[in-house]
Design a binder for these strands. Sequence first.
DNA 1: AAGGTGACCGGCC
DNA 2: TGGCCGGCCACCT
Length: 113
Amino acid sequence: MIPSTVSFFERVYNLVRQIPLGKVTTYGAIAKALGSGRSARMVGWAMNACHNQPDIPAHRVVNRVGMLTGKHHFDGTNLMQQLLENEGIQVNDNQITNFKIHYWEPPMGQDSQ
DNA sequence: AAGGTGACCGGCC
DNA sequence: TGGCCGGCCACCT
């Protein structure tokens, strides 16, 4: 169980922090791992406040088609793409190449760790 | 307390 | 993959 003292945001942050280097996942997958596969928007909203947290690899979180929808929210214009390529992920036109290959499924029910 | 918001998803063509 | 549309749900003002 997850302590109710932890906000939904922190749960998302915890999961995002568990994303292995060189791997990526989707908002829907994170939402599903939290138990609400339909609240994918909330995940994105949580990322909007990721600036509140110190170490959130938000660049490893993309939408279902592997597109860097949130790159616009980073400092630079191509910072997100640079970070992904730095981890060995090929990005082309704001879109991850071989997205499914780099896709990582978040652990369900183990986000409280 | 109520309404608006959003870094989305899934189905259909 | 792409465009359109409706649903979803916690956070903010």
